[in-house]
């Protein structure tokens, strides 16, 4: 694979990054945090995978009550929110603040749609007789997807904060990196769902 790393010179002073590596502290911190999050979600996913194969005593198996078309749509919504997020960042980097705000709000709305879908999914599962305490699989399933949902919710809160900051003129182009960092978090939450969608929903022996 060709490496297309841009070997740019040290960023000019106006960006305000004067660090040993020339990288921004905040972005580095975010990547370190995301590296750490890999082990969090890895743990939850593997607990689910291990418990999915155990026989259930009571209640249905999770895989029996999946609503794949519904989950596919909400997965698609979350996937597209990554696009709007990156468009918001591109907007603010260009100095197009109005458009950036629109995309930020769109991203938050798509995220909220996803969370709403998850709430609907949970309630319908409970109606089908699969509560949190019903069996091993249900605990593992709700914990994994619930953790992800909480992450999305935190992302939405951060996006709405960005929107408010921008509305009040506190998010000038020089601070585009703040959007980028929230965006990194958002995309990470998205890639985690890419994993969950495949290994939890689509592959079930």
């Amino acid at each position: 694979m060709t490496d297309t790393i841009v070997h740019a010179p040290i960023p000019d002073q106006s960006e305000g990054h004067h660090t040993s590596t020339g990288l921004s502290n905040e972005k580095l911190a975010m990547w370190a945090f995301l590296g750490s999050e890999c082990l969090l979600f890895g743990g939850l996913i593997s607990v689910f995978l291990i418990y999915r194969n155990k026989p259930v005593g009571v209640g249905p198996k999770v895989s029996q009550i999946y609503d794949i078309p519904f989950t596919s749509v909400s997965s698609f919504v979350l996937l597209m929110s990554s696009l709007t997020m990156v468009l918001a960042l591109a907007g603010i980097q260009r100095g197009d603040h109005r458009r950036a705000r629109i995309w930020i709000l769109t991203t938050a709305a798509l995220g909220a749609t996803f969370v709403a879908g998850q709430v609907y999914e949970f309630t319908s599962f409970v109606r089908e007789g699969l509560g949190y305490t019903t069996n091993l699989q249900s605990s593992a399933f709700y914990t994994l997807t619930g953790f992800h949902g909480v992450h999305v919710t935190i992302g939405i809160i951060m996006l709405l904060s960005l929107y408010t900051l921008s509305l009040r003129g506190n998010l000038p182009t020089e601070k585009a990196e703040t959007v980028e960092i929230v965006g990194l978090y958002w995309h990470f939450v998205d890639v985690v769902w890419i994993l969950i969608f495949t290994v939890v929903y689509l592959i079930h022996p």
């Binding site: 502290n25 905040e26 020089e174 601070k175 703040t178 960092i181």
Partner: peptide
Amino acid sequence: HEPEPAAVVA
């Protein structure tokens, strides 16, 4: 440039 918010939020 006030770089902390995003990192702190995150």
